[in-house]
Structures are given as structure tokens and as C-alpha cells.
């Protein structure tokens, strides 16, 4: 690894000033699982590293007045998996975190890092988008909020401009009678990068018979996480029959825009979108065991 200047500012303002002052070669450091690896193998050549971990508040999971939650960008995946608050309000996120990497990686990697790295396969993105999360961005000109759906611009590309930091994810209050699941397809039994990830969130009516709302978000099958409204619409307002579930799965598969790479062919990814979407729906409707 090459030499870089290192700063560990204690305030957000200081961090932003450092990033602005040092320009393009300056990188913020969160968990480091991605940045340190890329710097080690020369895929990135940081001149300056600004460690964000000494800034208070960035790693809090804080309930908000409206019943929502503020998830600090530096909260680790292990903390998300373990957090009682998270398990209670957004079990989908705790469940997703447990499917990521290994215990070792989860103890370092942060939710903010997973999102800012903007890999098409980023596991945290589909469930967060399904939950209607917002990215809280702070930069030299203050704070702004962006719906997470709009946060991703392409592989490795995000809404963040230089000098801006993702400081938190804001989650709206959990809605009643809502169940979600994130299914991740991998080759080994653990550890792998998602070949396909599918998050499905359903809000049921009082009788638990009809979905009042549905969200389907796909990972690893497009340059950015892909929400599939045409599949969602099939599911809303009518009984969730097998036919409808199959139709939603077909539409999701059709909407996917996968590529061939070393992990999988595009053909296989598209097939898996269909299978996983259908299975996610079966799981949510019938409480069948997750596969």
C-alpha cells in the first residue's frame, strides 16, 4: 500500500473541510473493508484518508420522533444484526445484515460503506429502498436528503459530490401489518457476493388477505438497485394468488437488466430473479420457511 496522509477529525465539519481541501485524492474511511483492500491492490490511490470513526453520532441507531429511525452511516452490519430496536422495527434489515459476509467482515463493514461503495450487488440497498429509506447527505453547503432509490447512479457512482458525506439513513416509521424478506442467491453456502438479491416488502390489509402495498427491489441485475413497479402493481389490491405471484416474478425477471461476469451469466441471473421473487412472495404469504 502507498503512503497517504491520515486524519481522524472529531467533527463532521472538520471532516468535510478536509475532504474539500484535499480534493479528488481524498477518501473518507468508514469500515475500511472496501477502501483498504482497494488501496492495498492499487485499484485506488488515496492521497488522503479521512477516518470518520472519531466523529460522535455517526454510529448511532436512534429512534426519531415520528416513530422512524435514524441509522448512522457508520453503524456496522454486526450492530444492525444485533440491535434489538432494529429487530423489532425493521427485522428485514437485521435479517439482511446476517446474510452479508462473515462475522469478521460484519464487525468492520458499515451500512454507509455498503451503500457508498455502490456495487450493484450491495445487499443493504434493496431492503432499504423497499423500506422507503432516505439518504442524509451532509456537505459544504449543509444537509440534504435524497430518497435512497435516487442515491445510486451506476456501479461505484452515487449522488455524493466531492466533499459530501452520507451521514445517516432515515427510515420512515414501520407500517403496520408489513412483512419483508431479502433473498440472496449465492453459490457457496455463505460469504459470496450476491448473484442476485431480491427484497420484497408487503403491507397486508386487516384480514391479511390482500396487499395494500408492495415493494420489490432487485440487486445485482442492473447498474443500480432496481425497483420493479410493474411487478409490484400486480400484487396490490387483489388476493395474492399463485397466479399473481408468478406474474409478479415473471415481470421482475423481465425487468432485470443483468450482465455476464465472472460470477454468473446474465441468463442465469434473470432466471434467478424469477425464482427468488416467487419464493419471497410465497414465504411472505404462507409463512413458509425461507429458502
Amino acid at each position: 500500500m502507498r503512503f497517504f496522509e491520515y486524519y481522524a477529525p472529531k467533527t463532521l465539519d472538520e471532516a468535510i473541510q478536509l475532504l474539500v481541501r484535499h480534493g479528488e485524492g481524498a477518501y473518507p474511511l468508514a469500515g475500511g473493508t472496501d477502501l483498504v483492500t482497494k488501496a492495498r491492490y492499487g485499484h485506488l490511490r488515496p492521497r488522503v484518508i479521512v477516518n470518520l470513526k472519531r466523529i460522535p453520532g455517526l454510529n448511532d441507531i436512534a429512534p426519531e420522533e415520528d416513530g422512524g429511525l435514524r441509522l448512522g452511516a457508520l453503524v456496522t452490519l454486526a450492530e444492525i444484526a444485533r440491535s434489538l430496536l432494529m429487530g423489532e422495527r425493521y427485522p428485514l434489515l437485521a435479517q439482511t445484515a446476517r446474510k452479508m459476509g462473515s462475522v469478521l467482515i460484519r464487525n468492520l463493514a458499515t451500512v454507509g460503506g455498503n451503500l457508498c461503495n455502490a456495487a450493484p450487488s450491495a445487499d443493504m440497498a434493496p431492503p432499504l429502498i423497499a423500506l422507503g429509506a432516505e439518504a442524509v447527505i451532509v456537505g459544504p453547503r449543509g444537509e440534504r436528503r435524497v430518497r435512497l432509490e435516487k442515491f445510486f447512479h451506476g456501479p461505484g457512482q452515487t449522488e455524493l459530490r466531492h466533499g459530501e458525506l452520507l451521514t445517516a439513513i432515515r427510515l420512515p416509521p414501520p407500517r403496520p401489518r408489513t412483512r419483508g424478506v431479502y433473498l440472496k442467491h449465492i453459490y457457496r453456502q455463505a460469504m459470496d457476493i450476491a448473484i442476485v438479491g431480491v427484497a420484497v416488502l408487503l403491507q397486508f390489509d386487516e384480514q391479511e388477505a390482500i396487499a395494500e402495498d408492495a415493494r420489490i427491489v432487485l440487486g445485482a441485475v442492473a447498474p443500480t438497485p432496481l425497483r420493479v413497479p410493474e411487478a409490484e402493481s400486480v400484487l396490490i389490491g387483489a388476493p395474492l394468488t399463485e397466479d399473481r405471484r408468478l406474474e409478479a416474478a415473471r415481470r421482475a425477471a423481465r425487468a432485470a437488466r443483468p450482465i455476464d461476469d465472472t460470477y454468473s451469466s446474465a441468463w442465469y441471473r434473470r432466471e434467478m430473479v424469477g425464482v427468488l421473487t416467487r419464493r419471497a412472495l410465497e414465504h411472505l404469504v404462507s409463512h413458509s420457511p425461507e429458502r
Binding site: L29, G31, T33, V36, N107
Partner: peptide
């Protein structure tokens, strides 16, 4: 437990 290769 963490992988010490990834922590500065």
C-alpha cells in the same frame, strides 16, 4: 473478531 489486514 476482525480481520486485522483490513484495519489501519
Amino acid at each position: 473478531p476482525i480481520p486485522s489486514c483490513l484495519m489501519l
